[in-house]
């Protein structure tokens, strides 16, 4: 194959759509690097995407996310579905480098043309991280993968955000990582569509499941607790207005290293996929994704334009005024905006 074909946007796009993996890898690099090719590539690929189901897998370090992803991908392959995997690891804030080691746990997937694994560092982009990941997801989607799995370290708001751009978010817990308060603190209960309690052969797995159930009010599924005057009151679940019931995050016990519980987890993901389609929630999520995406892009683009318009001299003056307390930052910002809009 001539690689010169991959030196143009058109060449990359047609090769990628024809299933060329080198073109796919190159395209992802262009997007990650925000090169001159990035925007035209995204524009060409966007209409081709939209059919993949996107999974987010998140959880604390060491819970077994990579091994679970490996197992899930294998199970999907057994069902004849292709899988794209994005494994996100943090960039060192000190050196700007990153050690991306998720492939170590995904060696079973080597040599399978129906699987594509890409390791991604968080890099430094302010708030743009979720967007960059979404763009890479979209690229894999356009390349025709049936399922796309994003694996992130579930610490920090941005990682949680990435996972929550998925259609189905799986939060991975493991026994012995602290009590249930840790789970609340991490703020990941709210984003979970499914819980996987991995390393379920270890002591305390049942306690972790119990704690999660309590957190989710799953203790009494027919009763729903509401806060009233500061007290929890159980009430009967009202019949849902539409003909579907609200999704209750299932808790699946897994032992990823032994492929146990993987099929159950996959079934839960697929059940959620069906639920999203039937309830109309998928459309709602797509709409939310579009809004978030547009907002981030607009914010970045407008800020860039405004700073360019104002010029560094004026900005420096304004900064100086704020430093010397001649102007407060809100007034200063307002004045810059007014000047930009006039």
């Amino acid at each position: 194959m001539s690689s010169s074909r991959l030196n143009s946007v058109d060449g990359l796009v047609s090769a990628l759509l024809a299933g060329n993996r080198r073109a796919l890898a190159r395209t992802i690099s262009h997007i990650e690097n925000n090169s001159d090719f990035a925007r035209p590539l995204l524009a060409a690929l966007y209409p081709r995407a939209g059919s993949a189901h996107i999974l987010g897998i998140t959880g604390a370090p060491g819970t077994g996310k990579s091994t679970l992803v490996n197992g899930l991908a294998r199970a999907y392959r057994q069902r004849g579905l292709t899988v794209g995997i994005i494994a996100v690891d943090p960039t060192s804030p000190f050196s700007g480098g990153a050690l991306l080691g998720d492939r170590v746990r995904m060696r079973d997937l080597a040599g399978d043309p129906g699987v594509f694994i890409r390791s991604m560092a968080t890099r430094g982009s302010l708030g743009g991280l979720a967007q960059a990941t979404a763009d890479v997801v979209m690229t894999l989607d356009a390349a025709g993968f049936d399922r796309i799995v994003i694996e992130t370290v579930g610490v920090g708001q941005s990682e949680v955000e990435i996972a929550s751009t998925a259609h189905t978010t799986v939060v991975v817990e493991a026994p012995g990582l602290g009590d249930e308060v840790q789970a609340i603190k991490a703020g990941i209960l709210e984003i979970a569509d499914i819980f996987a309690v991995n390393k379920a052969d270890r002591d305390g797995a049942d306690r972790t499941v119990m704690a999660l159930k309590m957190m989710l009010n799953l203790g009494a599924p027919e009763k729903h607790h509401v806060m009233h005057h500061g007290r929890l009151l159980p009430v009967e679940m009202p019949e849902h207005a539409s003909d579907h019931v609200a999704w209750m995050p299932p808790i699946v016990k897994t032992i990823a290293t032994q492929q146990q519980g993987i099929v159950e987890l996959l079934d839960a993901v697929e059940a959620h996929r069906l639920y999203l389609a039937q309830s109309g929630d998928r459309q709602l999520r797509e709409q939310l994704r579009a809004i978030t995406s547009l907002r981030i892009i607009l914010r970045d683009a407008l800020l860039e334009q405004l700073l360019e318009d104002a010029g560094s001299k004026r900005i420096n003056q304004v900064v100086q005024d704020v430093v010397t307390r001649q102007r407060d930052p809100y007034t200063a910002a307002r004045q810059l905006i007014d000047h930009f809009c006039s």
Binding site: T91, F94, S95, G97, G101, V104, A121
Partner: peptide, 20 residues
């Protein structure tokens, strides 16, 4: 060391075949 030099390092682990 390469990470500390600012590179993105993908570590695959041991027992890799040439094709892998």
């Amino acid at each position: 060391a390469l990470r500390d030099a600012g590179y993105e390092v993908i570590y695959t682990g041991i027992r890799q075949t040439p094709d892998m």
